[in-house]
Amino acid sequence: MNNKLYLIISRVFNIDISLINNNSSPKTIDTWDSMNMYVLINEVETEFGIKFSLDEILEIQNVQNIENLLVKHGCENK
């Protein structure tokens, strides 16, 4: 179910996909710093063809938040 998002996260944070779950956050992923976070948002937006609002971006604390946003924007995460 989470393939596409996890693939992007794995690429941007340069970690193995098996280490990612919906609770993953800057606390569990070392490379999740503010710069990489912006890169992640940017690449999620390009690949899903959506744009998050500034509010939505500021809400993101973990992978679950991003997935919720994708559902909210009507994206199919496959």
Binding site: S34, M35, Y38, V39, N42, E43, T46, F52, S53, L54, I57
Partner: peptide, 14 residues
């Protein structure tokens, strides 16, 4: 504008 407000990014990352 979002990248500008978030991190003073003036040339978007993409």
């Amino acid at each position: 504008y979002r990248q500008y407000y978030l991190g003073d990014v003036k040339i978007s990352l993409e």
